[in-house]
Nucleic acid binder design. Sequence first.
DNA 1: CGGAAGATTGATCAGTTTCAAGCTCCGTGG
DNA 2: CCACGGAGCTTGAAACTGATCAATCTTCCG
Lengths: 230, 230
Amino acid sequence: MLNLAADPIAAIPLFAGCSKPQLERLRNIASPSVYEKGGYIFTEGLEATGFYVVAQGQVKIFKAAPDGREQILHIMGPGEHFAEVAMFSGSRYPANAMALSKARIIFFPKEPLVALMRSDPALCWSMLGSMARRLREFASIIEGLTLRELPARLASYLLLAAESAGGQAVELDVSKTLLAGLLGASRETISRALAKLADSGFIRLEGRRILIENPQGLDALAKGEEKLGK
Amino acid sequence: MLNLAADPIAAIPLFAGCSKPQLERLRNIASPSVYEKGGYIFTEGLEATGFYVVAQGQVKIFKAAPDGREQILHIMGPGEHFAEVAMFSGSRYPANAMALSKARIIFFPKEPLVALMRSDPALCWSMLGSMARRLREFASIIEGLTLRELPARLASYLLLAAESAGGQAVELDVSKTLLAGLLGASRETISRALAKLADSGFIRLEGRRILIENPQGLDALAKGEEKLGK
DNA sequence: CGGAAGATTGATCAGTTTCAAGCTCCGTGG
DNA sequence: CCACGGAGCTTGAAACTGATCAATCTTCCG
């Protein structure tokens, strides 16, 4: 388990390969701060001054439409970093970042970090790895949005979330509103889709909690091998 | 203008910062080949053995559904590289790559290139830059797919394509089928949307050619400030 | 306990897909 | 040189997925 409380900087996976003196330099430029639930860390189009690492809590990175609808690109948890893109291309944040709960965030100003990275292939490599992973994720979000319908996306999400939460048939604790933003659908549609999944015995709903009852069935749904009846 | 015919390797933007000896090493590991129109360079899930640069022609990177529908993630032209992601994360290609026209492609095997990059921060940096750009692109594709409807996406595409093709009111040469794959819609829907745009005087259609007549109007559409009437 | 935020459910609507039929352009072979 | 055939495109009608609106209900938390 990640312990970001004791030595937050050293525990960040991105900096795993860094030497003692490098970590020291990182500590010197880092500036921690706390955001309340619902607080914006930055908004799209704002001049980018550095990048961020989550020490505690969760942050959603999202695009917003004028009418209030939103699409979540990623939910960042402890140890994850965001807004790196702004360091390597363009100078403005390409999306919004908001704390989902009270969150401790560490900010690294652009210039010193760039200097550090430019001289350290290992650090670059580490960054390349996480950006590559994110590219894969984005590609699969895009795929989902055009090539698969909501039930399939939902099933995928549930399985993935369950897997990263532990065993086979796990219970998750997610708000439906969040799911809607994540899957590119409206709250109402998510509600209906979950109700159908529960009707068909794939899952069980207990308030905000979702219990997975039939992983195999969900998997078939996710792959589009099967469809949800009326 | 990029001249990839004379010295293809040196002309690749990704390798712009490389020294003479590095370029020499790159030349030694590069293996060029030619693909006919419609030829697969790789398919999703295949074991990844290296990455590719387009020397000539065009390549589409896309996800495919079992029923034949597809979503294009990117169209690569001369000087652009693809499948880098497979070098830094995972070991399988995350999508399909097909030549859109007869194409000359340069292949770089994984291991020697990784070795080269690990020791060269400038090269890493260059790669970070292009991956960051792609992340931005993907984020905006995702945004478009959920937050904007087809006419807006189409207008954006036309403006962007026109811009990268030259002046204000330019003519583009695109197949509608390709547009459909790019914008996450069916061929028929694209056809109808273009017809409407032409009716309203935003563009003029001449076979495969699209002439932009009213960039301001398209811009308003793209931003969602205006809508396309019946 | 009260209020606000989140969730459900039903009815209706809009955007897009799908199916189907026919068209146009273009290269090829007779 | 023309006819044939195919690929790509267009257009219409019907079907569907998901969005929106609206009313009601539940949950949670101060």
